[in-house]
Amino acid sequence: MKKKEIRPKRSTRKDLQYQHLAAQSANRAPVVVYLSNGTRLQGIVLATDNYMVLLGRRLDDPQPTIVYKQAICLVTPLDTPVVGIDPAIAAEFVPIYIPRTRKGR
């Protein structure tokens, strides 16, 4: 009889993402959200679910912004600079957004 191999549960990417966004939501610290199309949003993470992040300018913001998690590339605290981007070059750099096309199946 073959012995069944037991593996420890690995933390998935979604679990790590959930923990990070939950910590940002609990801290109520200002964050910078970089989107895949090059947009940079600043605000406070008010709430999250499986698909979206609610981002507001203040805790009592009457019109917060809903951002799809699929569009988010990076979430950093407001006071943390992004390493690897020269500020002089970043001011002139305009990213080109090329939408993905669906391939025929």
Rank of each mutant, 00 (worst) to 15 (best):
M1Q: 08
M1D: 14
M1V: 13
K4G: 12
K4R: 15
K4D: 12
E5H: 14
I6V: 15
I6F: 14
R7L: 14
R7K: 15
R7I: 06
R7D: 04
P8R: 05
K9F: 00
K9T: 13
R10Q: 04
R10L: 15
T12D: 06
R13G: 08
R13A: 11
R13C: 08
K14E: 12
Q17G: 07
Q17T: 12
Q17D: 07
Y18A: 08
Y18E: 12
Q19R: 11
Q19H: 11
Q19F: 05
H20W: 08
L21G: 08
L21S: 04
A22Y: 07
A22N: 05
A23Y: 07
A23T: 07
A23W: 02
A23R: 13
Q24R: 11
Q24H: 13
S25I: 05
S25D: 07
S25E: 14
S25C: 08
A26Q: 13
P30S: 07
V31I: 08
Y34P: 04
L35D: 01
L35S: 03
L35Q: 01
S36D: 10
N37R: 04
N37S: 01
N37H: 03
N37W: 00
Q42R: 15
Q42F: 06
G43N: 04
G43I: 03
I44F: 00
V45I: 03
V45G: 00
V45A: 00
L46M: 02
L46V: 00
A47P: 01
A47N: 03
A47H: 04
T48R: 03
T48C: 06
T48V: 13
D49I: 03
N50Y: 03
N50I: 02
Y51E: 08
M52V: 10
M52F: 02
M52W: 06
M52I: 08
L54M: 02
L54T: 03
L55P: 01
G56E: 00
R57H: 00
L59H: 02
D60I: 04
D61I: 11
D61L: 06
P62T: 04
P62R: 10
Q63D: 05
P64G: 01
I66D: 09
I66P: 02
V67L: 00
V67E: 00
Y68H: 10
Y68S: 09
K69H: 06
Q70S: 09
Q70I: 06
Q70K: 10
A71T: 12
A71F: 04
I72A: 02
I72S: 03
C73P: 05
L74T: 06
L74S: 09
T76E: 12
T76Y: 07
T76N: 10
T76A: 11
L78S: 14
L78H: 11
D79F: 12
D79H: 14
T80M: 14
T80K: 14
T80E: 12
V82F: 11
V82G: 10
V83W: 15
I85C: 14
I85A: 12
D86H: 14
P87N: 13
A88M: 14
A88H: 15
I89F: 15
A90M: 14
A90K: 04
A91V: 15
A91C: 05
A91E: 15
A91P: 13
E92G: 12
F93H: 06
V94F: 15
V94L: 07
P95M: 05
I96A: 14
Y97P: 02
Y97A: 08
I98H: 11
I98C: 09
P99S: 04
R100E: 10
T101W: 07
R102T: 13
R102G: 11
R102A: 08
K103F: 10
G104W: 12
R105A: 09
R105E: 09
